[in-house]
Design a protein around this nucleic acid. Structure first.
Lengths: 104, 104
DNA sequence: GAATCAAATAAGTGTGTGCTTATATGTTGT
DNA sequence: ACAACATATAAGCACACACTTATTTGATTC
């Protein structure tokens, strides 16, 4: 169940930090560790969880593995959220503005 | 950290089921148990977690406690998601259709 | 092909989480 | 005040999870 993998992946603050880092630009696993007190295997394990949740994609480049945000995971969350659109009417206008921005 | 409470709350499939039930209409804790093989304390504990995450609101009515979706939690997720809007361009059209539906 | 470096996997450990049963609290009606 | 019912809390337990160190796999360079 992909939805479960998704929310479980995001339930860990360290993984959300990693994801956020990648959102600012793709990086290899070593660079991701910069500024985070985290062992190499821990990072590797977190990335595996994020991969399984489709929040992140890997791409081997020589002996490095470059990681980047996988839009698929975000789209799945957006899809989940959309099911409950009846409950965020106050945010509709804000979202519309957002989409208008994205047109340009 | 509310964001952490949120994703942790949604990481459990039983809680997502409870939330989905409430999205279809507010209910008290007993009615929520209908059709779910789950003890009364377990339900109570799950509701406490959902409450803490602002995904759900309680409202005492006599000796029952009526539960309903709290839009605040959903809005927070939408806010989190919005941070990464750069990564879901492929879904823009689908979202637009969604918003068009919401206009009516 | 041996040395070197990046990343993944294995195995073990402490803590967190979701459940259970038992009990307490809150509210209603007699 | 007491019985009955809805919900919450307490305590304990089994399992999941995030970490660690040690080792393996993958890729480059000499």
């Amino acid at each position: 169940m992909i939805e479960n993998d998704l929310f479980k992946a995001l339930a860990d603050p360290t993984r959300r930090t990693i994801f956020e880092k990648l959102a600012h630009g793709s990086m290899n696993a070593s660079d991701l560790r910069q500024g985070m007190t985290i062992s190499q295997p821990a990072m590797s394990q977190h990335l595996a969880v994020l991969r399984k949740a489709r929040l992140v994609r890997e791409e081997r480049q020589g002996r490095f593995v470059n990681y980047q945000v996988d839009p698929e995971g975000l789209a799945l969350i957006a899809g989940w959220l959309a099911k409950y659109r009846a409950y965020w009417p106050a945010r509709i206008d804000a979202l519309k503005d957002l989409l208008k921005d994205m047109d340009q």
